[in-house]
Design a protein around this nucleic acid. Structure first.
Length: 561
RNA sequence: GCGCCUGUAGCUCAGCAGGAUAGAGCAACGCCCUUCUAAGGCGUGGGUCAGGGGUUCGAAUCCCUUUAGGCGCGCCA
């Protein structure tokens, strides 16, 4: 409900139109000053009056059925009728949720490139951020009515697959790979590098096998596909646990035959230049280093592939927005690629957005590296979190039904929330302590609050929530909750605009805190019927919002825990 | 060297399209369960918003500068 609109329409102020006043209205610093405020300082010069005098004038003129105005030290503070506010907001929330998308049926398409794991390597915590942020944005945009295309741009090309084939043929055991999946593959890969240090011929063999993959040799292609299938099978398990989905797994290998078109266009537009034997696009006019398109041996590069992929996505999905959820190390790369697309004459280059996020490192320091063994596997983290959840349930609620399911929801939720609750640009030092924390600003806290709301309602016999007396929800604690509930929609839009799921996470914490404060000193069950119903109404709206918001963060909400 | 990002309480972070006394969580200490889930709530302590200039009625927020850290800068992705 847009209360600012109601206020700005009823200002009756000579020097301020509705349109001017509307954006100037802000939330009061604290609810005991009022709900919205209008600072009058900037009019002082023009009107040659003190801000205080102006504020008084505005306050006097403002007249609305549902609010009062008061001038305080240069501000006009507007106080809405709380029963009115509660009625509008709660009715909207109770009815809403699902009508969300219907209100904004934009039919626009957004492509999101995220997770983008490497074949033959296990899913480790280095992949957690892109996967969680991308997966969350996927849900957020869906919620806002977009068509969303989730793309897992697989790292399934490169000389390492030649190495894999050599290693597999020399030392591999199919049964072992069947059994241990990617981990067996990684061991082979690590062994290859160790042995290659002694024996240079191995690298030659690897190159030869990669050439065979490129040439479509049957044995090579089959092995390559096998490695891919083994990896995907295992990674899919992690995606399922996290509630992540994709609409396309077109990775690097998919674009092998789609780069010639890009090179043609670059030539046509006269953008390609030779430099030290390589083909580049000179970007010095834009204060950037050149973008490498072809190596001196004629092979394509990372940028070439990304150009081809962008063109393919535009042609295939006709996106309105094309997102790349990739760590900030690649800031320059994407800047270059988008600039080249623009130079190629694609006006949709402006719709391509790099969504960067911070680096993940381990407490002991050192960069994450599969080859050196300095890794923490995500499946281990999830397992540990679920185990801890099981222990906590056993301790706090041993009679709980569906213990196993609940433990999964709580444990996985905690890990996801850890990844999604701080601004994505900040670096993250992974620690089990943080990932396994269930108290304070965590997913279990939000889930607990949601379950609490649910539980109270069940306790009260789940009465129909109609004919609510909203004047029973006008104390400070209730009003604080109502005010927050009213912000939910704006929060989601803000999160989408800034590609920042943490905005939702932060909001849900505020909402839960505010509700819990209300809950502890407002009894719900066993009061007179009208009071119970009114408080249940508030409770139910909080529950619904928490559940919805958690869902946007990929987190499930158990009814009991 | 050049470019981008970050610096707010002991720790992890909100707040940054300027607005009223800078907020949470964790950690510490002290309270609150014979009454709706204590994975909770209440309270106490803790800050020169990295330093310095500037713009403004007003700056954690905008501009300049210094500083500390991270990342990137041609044939890897």
């Amino acid at each position: 409900m847009d209360f600012k609109k109601i206020i700005s329409e009823n200002l009756n102020c000579g020097f301020l139109t509705q349109e001017q006043a509307y954006p100037m209205l802000g939330a009061c610093a604290s609810l005991d000053m009022g709900d919205y405020c209008l600072p009058c300082f900037r009019f002082a010069k023009e009107l040659k009056k003190s801000p205080q005098a102006i504020a008084e004038e505005v306050a006097k003129g403002a007249a609305g059925e549902y609010f009062t105005a008061e001038s305080v030290g240069g501000y006009v503070n507007f106080r809405l009728n709380r029963a009115f506010m509660a009625e509008k907001v709660l009715t909207e929330v109770a009815a809403g949720g699902e009508t969300f998308a219907a209100e904004k049926p934009n039919g626009k398409t957004v492509c999101i490139d995220y997770s983008s794991i490497n074949i033959a390597k296990p899913f480790h915590i280095g992949h957690l951020l892109t996967t969680a942020i991308g997966g969350s944005l996927y849900r957020i945009y869906k919620r806002l009515g977009y068509n969303v295309v989730g793309i897992n741009h697989l790292g399934d090309w490169g000389t390492q697959f030649g190495k894999m084939i050599v290693a597999f043929k020399k030392w591999g055991d199919k049964k072992d790979v069947e059994k241990r999946g990617v981990h067996a593959l990684v061991e082979l890969y690590v062994r290859f590098h160790k042995e290659a240090e002694q024996d240079e011929k191995l690298d030659d063999e690897a190159r030869a096998w990669f050439k065979k993959i490129e040439d479509g040799d049957k044995e090579a292609t089959e092995l390559f596909k096998y490695f891919k299938a083994v990896t995907l099978q295992e990674v899919d398990k992690v995606y399922k646990r996290l509630g992540i989905e994709f609409d396309s797994y077109n990775g690097e290998s998919f674009y092998n035959d789609k780069m010639d078109g890009v090179i043609e266009t670059l030539k046509e537009k006269n953008l390609l230049k030779q430099s030290d034997g390589a083909s580049i696009v000179d970007l010095s006019d834009y204060n950037m280093p050149p973008c490498l398109i072809l190596r001196s041996d004629g092979a394509s590069l990372y940028a070439t592939r990304d150009l081809a992929a962008a063109v393919y996505r535009k042609n295939t999905y006709d996106f309105d927005k094309n997102l790349y959820v990739v760590a900030y190390q690649q800031n320059l790369h994407f800047k270059q690629v988008f600039k080249v697309l623009e130079l190629m004459g694609y006006d949709w280059a402006k719709d391509c957005v790099h969504v960067p996020f911070g680096m993940v490192s381990l407490e002991g320091g050192g960069s994450l590296s599969t080859r050196s063994g300095n890794v923490v596997y995500l499946s281990d983290v999830l397992d540990t979190a679920v185990e801890k959840a099981e222990r906590v349930i056993e301790e706090k609620n041993p009679g709980l039904k569906e213990k196993e399911k609940t433990a999964k929801q709580v444990g996985v939720g905690a890990v996801l929330f850890m990844a999604l609750s701080t601004s994505k640009i900040k670096d993250l030092v992974f620690s089990y302590d943080k990932a396994l924390s269930f108290e304070g600003e965590t997913a279990p806290y939000l889930q607990y609050t949601q379950a609490r709301c649910r539980s109270v309602r069940v306790k009260c016999g789940e009465p129909e929530l109609n004919n609510i007396d909203f004047s029973l929800l006008t104390d400070d604690a209730a009003a604080a909750v109502v005010t927050l509930l009213n912000r939910y929609k704006a929060v989601i839009c803000d999160a989408a605009e800034k590609y920042e799921p943490s905005i939702i996470a932060k909001y849900l914490i505020d909402l839960a805190q505010s509700y819990n404060a209300f809950y502890v000193d407002h009894r719900i069950a066993g009061e007179i019927e009208d009071v119970t119903k009114a408080r249940l109404m508030l409770s139910e709206c909080v529950r619904k919002t928490l559940k919805d918001g958690l869902n946007l963060l990929l987190i499930e909400s158990p009814d009991k825990m």
